[in-house]
Design a protein around this nucleic acid. Structure first.
Lengths: 339, 339
DNA sequence: CTGAAAGCGCTAACAT
DNA sequence: ATGTTAGCGCTTTCAG
């Protein structure tokens, strides 16, 4: 058992309250008792026990984070942003992944709530129909969604405008002369963002008088199977450009296209969504709708803390949802359409 | 304030002790009182407060994780493995990053210890000279190193054999006819692994009667500067193969080589270390010494839990350090040497 | 099988 | 400026 405030008090010849004061409001302790106490603290190697403090205070200065997976760089970057911002505000981070399983979302949040985190940052499959969010609402635990753009304005969120970003991406392809543009997407039911991005695709096509094609939905772990691209063998059949709902999918598609003997971008252009850093290091550079993942995390954390500290003395400003700016990254994976 | 065990007890007409018993040893409570209590729990939406429990128990079933950064996929995967394994063993994870700053290592561990985590998993700059590890040792907090291979056998760790893996990687290049092989590495002082990998490089060179070249040390964030490759312009000067201490560096190098007008692998072969998944999706595939990052995380967590539960009734086996198997991934970034 | 009571470490009134 | 005291939620003897 590590030393407690009690032993420090004894060693320093003061009461536990004074030790506590030194820890929390140092200016309210005379400098010589402070010295004595600090000495005792150093001698004993004392470190405050946050469990005691939290129990007493009813707050933990800890936030919970729930993401689908860390295998997708996007979420890793986001968590990175969260942790960095949390540290700067003296908050700690408890982390959980769900592997895209909705049951696990609920269990994860449950566990976090048992730890009495002050709030939660999460990305869910579908923000408009999530039992998990309902729990959070009913228990009045502050939370902030990342990547999700909920219908309900009451739900705090931080994301790009997925629909607009997708529209811009597809408009970019159209501007380069492409007319047969098809979307490759993860399962819609597993990601409300994928749906919004598809809507953006449709927007762009319609705006330019083009006919949207049926999207190709594929499972997340796009393994070795290239069945989903079978029709691409026929040059008449295949689109001239493929717009993927995320960069990982774009990479998988490019690999599979290559396996089919197709060249990117000469035979087909490929555009992604997310703008993961590695996309920029490779050749050809992966064109993509870039979202600022680390910043999404940072802003989400700040928003959450604002929500947590609502009405507290030093409470930050009113928390509000944010739509962060996206950008279109041009890259060699996309080429002017040549008939 | 959420409901406490006390309110549940009152609502169910029993004592708090009985509620606690139902929560912890359900079989020691009669089935009808159990019913009453469960009903009260459901009605109140009760959730145990781990702070109270931890305070009392002196254990938290929480582990702390400290990694340099999540921008490197390797650590993201590792954290993923940790979290997954933790969840399966009913442990929670508090996460921190250090951005490779040693001061932050100490601060991070300090914070985790204040939260009274039961143990820590961490990757440090230099496992043989780390104030942070000394603290952990002196406070008798169980910890497991990941990626680091400490000199001191007393320190638990999970990693590949960095030296042997590097030796194998370089031997692969030599087998393909390369003789002028140079190493590109992150700063040695920031990573003991980098040193071990350099030793492996030297081993392989010497074993084959070749002269090791002076390694090129570069900062982590290999920006746009290509100065470090300036000498490569001269075909006589440059090595025929570049062995990079990690995959991120390999990608950056390939990008910079391209900027210099050099082709990979025709003009120069490039080999990495880590074997990040994306390396396999691109063209050319990045040849690399693959370490099983997610598994490293998983094994580290299990080892840590074994150390924590040492001597406890259901204690797992004796904790021990692990050297996991590496593999050499062949890829198009490396080519047979043609004079 | 259940209850009463003590105490884990800490902080916040309330006194002095 | 400092001490006294009560209590946050929970578990665990000890009695019954």
């Amino acid at each position: 058992m590590p030393p407690s405030i009690k032993q420090v008090a004894q060693q320093a010849g003061v009461s536990t309250a004074t030790v506590s004061r030194l820890l929390n409001k140092p200016e309210s302790v005379s400098s010589d008792t402070a010295d004595k106490i600090n000495q005792a603290i150093a001698a004993l190697g004392f470190r405050p026990n946050f469990n005691g403090r939290n129990l007493r205070a009813g707050r933990s200065r800890t936030v919970g984070v729930v993401v689908p997976t860390l295998s997708n760089t996007v979420f890793a970057q986001c968590l990175q942003g969260i942790e960095l911002a949390a540290r700067s505000l003296d908050y700690s981070v408890m982390f959980t992944a769900t592997e895209y399983r909705q049951e696990d979302e609920a269990a994860a949040v449950d566990l976090l709530l048992s730890h009495r985190v002050d709030g939660v940052i999460l990305t869910v499959a579908d923000a408009s129909a999530s039992a998990t969010l309902d729990v959070l609402d009913s228990e009045r635990i502050p939370y902030v969604l990342t990547y999700n753009q909920p219908q309900q304005a009451s739900r705090l969120s931080v994301s790009v405008d997925n629909r607009a970003a997708a529209r811009d991406a597809v408009a970019h392809l159209i501007a380069l002369g492409h007319t047969r543009i098809q979307m490759l997407s993860g399962y819609f039911h597993a990601s409300d963002r994928a749906i919004q991005r598809y809507q953006g695709y449709v927007d762009a096509m319609r705006e330019h008088g083009l006919t949207p094609l049926t999207p190709i939905e594929v499972p997340r772990h796009t393994g070795l199977g290239v069945d989903y691209l079978q029709s691409f063998a026929d040059p008449q059949q295949r689109p001239s450009a493929l717009f993927c709902s995320n960069d990982l999918l774009a990479f998988a598609a490019m690999r599979d296209l290559r396996a089919l003997g197709l060249r990117v971008p000469q035979d087909i252009s490929v555009m992604g969504f997310d703008g993961i850093p590695l996309g920029e290091m490779m050749s050809p550079v992966l064109a993509s709708a870039v979202q600022p993942s680390e910043q999404i995390g940072e802003v989400a954390l700040r928003t959450l803390v604002a929500a947590i500290e609502q009405g507290s003395p030093d409470g930050a400003g009113q928390p509000a949802s944010s739509i962060l700016a996206h950008a279109i990254r041009h890259g060699g994976s996309v080429q002017i359409f040549v008939p």
